[in-house]
Amino acid sequence: MQFSRLESANAASPVRFTCNGQVVEARAGDSVATALLLAGIGSTRDTALSGEGRAPYCLMGVCFECLVEIDGVPNQQACLVPVSDGMSVRRQEGAPQVWDG
């Protein structure tokens, strides 16, 4: 699953953030979810049960498939969060580890 951007939409100001350390070049006005799709990050999480990969399904805040960790806070709906410079995004992989030390 690859996405591209219309030439007309490339003029918006650039925004740069990372996903699992990989630099993502986005545009102002993108949601994190759409920016990840455009960057070729086709799967945004692995499920907590079977571990299978999932990707944004609705892009309007109802499917919860795009849950990611943003700046250390897990379970953010990537389709509802606008991109901003320096943001650190991480995929959610499997069940969360509960620290009991």
Binding site: M1, D30, T34, L37
Partner: peptide, 25 residues
């Protein structure tokens, strides 16, 4: 329908409106 690469039709329309983004391939 849970595979990456499956979205709703509305999702593609929203990506095109909000970011000018469209799927290739």
């Amino acid at each position: 329908w849970t595979l990456p690469g499956v979205t709703t039709i509305g999702a593609l329309q929203l990506a095109l409106k909000q970011s000018g983004a469209y799927p290739t391939g």
